[in-house]
Design a binder for these strands. Structure first.
Lengths: 341, 341
DNA sequence: CCATTGATTGACAGCGCTGTCATTCAATGA
DNA sequence: TCATTGAATGACAGCGCTGTCAATCAATGG
């Protein structure tokens, strides 16, 4: 950059001129060489190479061509969970030549709404969103999007278009059933910033509903107003044990990060797992399974969710408007029988 | 979607008409309400709201307006390392209203080149790339990009424009120095698919160069032709110990995933760390530090790299063409004195 | 030999917006 | 009072490409 104004990039019309064909023929040759004669295709490609031509998809998309961009809105990247989902999305999008355009909502509905607007203003081919208490304006935007929209993570919702995920209510319920069956009696819960993380709350609801149906209940609940982390879980368990009138015999944590923290507290305090205290988490993270005593938790198939979501978008794009109406894909969860509960 | 053709979205000219102003005034009111009278701004905003107008940035960018998209090319998302980098990028881009457009090269130079073309064809405001043996065509593309380009992860390179990272050669050298100082004599190395992961190779080069300068050398080297993983590291160490004529007293692994696998092998075989065998890794992942005996490793400041890279792009964009020429930002690494070496 | 067919190619118009420059007009000071 | 200034607004043109439909032309069969 010598300070001069940037030299204009070569355009399609220049390529066409050199190749001695019309602009539209050059366009076709470059996009799908099978739609023109072999000779024509070669001439055009040579001209493009000679000029260092680089397609301008801005113009292409504006003129009505397809976009290969897909909006992706996730609440956070601080935690491996959504990185896994993103990986799953990439797995399928990359192969199809699509690119995620990323926005992080930070669990903030207002920010999420702004992101939806922002990403939609690029007229993407589709949108994948892990919703965070979406505003009604957000839902209205998505409903009128005019392209496929997939809401991911949770299937306990009324999707605007499609959704892919698991039943968090069901996951909480299943864990409650497992713990009841194991004979635990004094249940406690330790959670993180649950106002923002709606899905953790849904799990808790499923958990307590099942306890109550079995004539049991939570004897202690601690929710901490901060993002989930190992440290938060460790401190949380310390606090709960300190403050509880009667010690619980099992603690359900809002997720594996928190639960691993709980395990660490037990290790450092010589509380034996699961005899003296049992611990359960959610997600099935690798770290939980790599512990000396593997964590009892619920596997949440995060990568799978991403893959299925990408697949749903691509399928819909291929089918055009003849596609089936709103659908919900449940990838299912699995109870991981570790050694901590 | 009733099967009819998608209804046209409201356009700026419709907004302008309703507001009773010219198109360009409406455009200005919507982009920067301070550039028009308060009253005008209100009228336009009301008209836009009434119509459900959604800005079309495709048209805007084509007409010469700025883009808020930034191409981001990473080799993989399978591993927390690049998820961390992406988080760092997001931290700064999100606040500035920029969005990463993601491409995953899978450590494949050809694929990387295709991605560069693909992302550049959207005329982004900048590009961040963790290079994977970039082809000369790739470098040429980047050199003529006309927007800021940051190559990340490694500063031991000749950057096309800017670069942000650490010296992997230096990191390998530093670990060698540390291990020599500790008195280890029989050094071994276990690595993963090093043909593709060039940076791991650079660390190894720094490591061996330093050993040799001190009159030492690697007594055993095992490189496995697969992506790095805990399992690969575990099996690798088992294989190395089985095949080696003389057992090493310290093993340098290509990264923490691999090294943690090595630690697991030692645990299951009752090999005491670090007396019987010492282990060192690279990255400073949380899991390594959460082990019963924390891993000796090199902290690589991944989130910081992302943040600095985003900052460099944003700064350059603000400064316009008057910006300083090519620069290299070294965020530095830190030796993590764990208990395994 | 001529009508018919399908494959190639091209003309046209316009996607929706913004940079650039010119115009308008009220406010200001000599 | 009139020239001067700066803010607000507008006219114009064009960014680079692709969908649609029409035109062309060689190959085919009756």
């Amino acid at each position: 950059m010598q300070g001069g104004k940037p030299p204009r990039k070569p355009t399609l019309s220049q390529v066409a001129q050199i190749a001695g064909v019309s602009e539209i023929t050059a366009s076709r040759a470059l996009r799908d060489s099978a739609s023109v004669t072999q000779g024509t295709a070669r001439k055009v490609q040579e001209a493009a190479a000679q000029l260092g031509y680089l397609r301008n998809r801005l113009a292409g998309a504006l003129a009505g061509g397809p976009s290969n961009q897909v909006g992706v809105i996730l609440p956070s990247l601080a935690n491996i969970v959504f990185a896994d989902v993103l990986k799953g999305l990439e797995d399928h999008f990359e192969d199809a030549g699509f690119h995620p355009v990323l926005g992080i909502s930070n669990y903030d509905p207002q920010r999420e709404e702004r992101l939806i607007r922002d990403l939609m203003s690029w007229r993407p081919a589709g949108l994948v969103i892990a919703p965070s208490n979406s505003t009604s304006a957000s839902r209205k935007l998505l409903a009128g999007a005019g392209f496929p929209v997939v809401e991911i993570m949770d299937v306990d919702i009324d999707p605007v278009d499609m959704c892919v995920g698991i039943s968090h209510h069901g996951a909480g319920a299943e864990m409650a059933r497992h713990l009841i069956e194991r004979g635990y009696k004094r249940f406690a819960y330790i959670g993180h910033d649950i106002v923002r993380d709606q899905r953790a709350l849904t799990r808790l609801n499923g958990f307590t509903a099942t306890l109550e149906a079995a004539g049991q209940s939570l004897s202690a609940t601690l929710t901490l107003d901060a993002p989930s982390s190992v440290t938060l879980g460790r401190n949380g368990l310390a606090q709960l044990l300190r403050e509880a009138d009667q010690a619980p015999d099992v603690v359900y944590f809002s997720n594996d990060d928190m639960a691993v923290g709980g395990v660490f507290h037990c290790m450092s305090e010589n509380i034996s797992l699961p005899d003296q205290l049992a611990i359960a988490g959610f997600n099935g993270l690798e770290i939980g399974q790599a512990l000396p005593v593997p964590l009892t938790t619920t596997g949440s198939n995060r990568v799978r969710i991403g893959q299925k979501a990408a697949g749903a978008i691509l399928q819909r794009l291929k089918d055009g408007n003849t596609a089936p109406a709103a659908q919900s894909i449940d990838v299912g969860f699995t109870l991981v029988h570790g050694g901590t509960a």
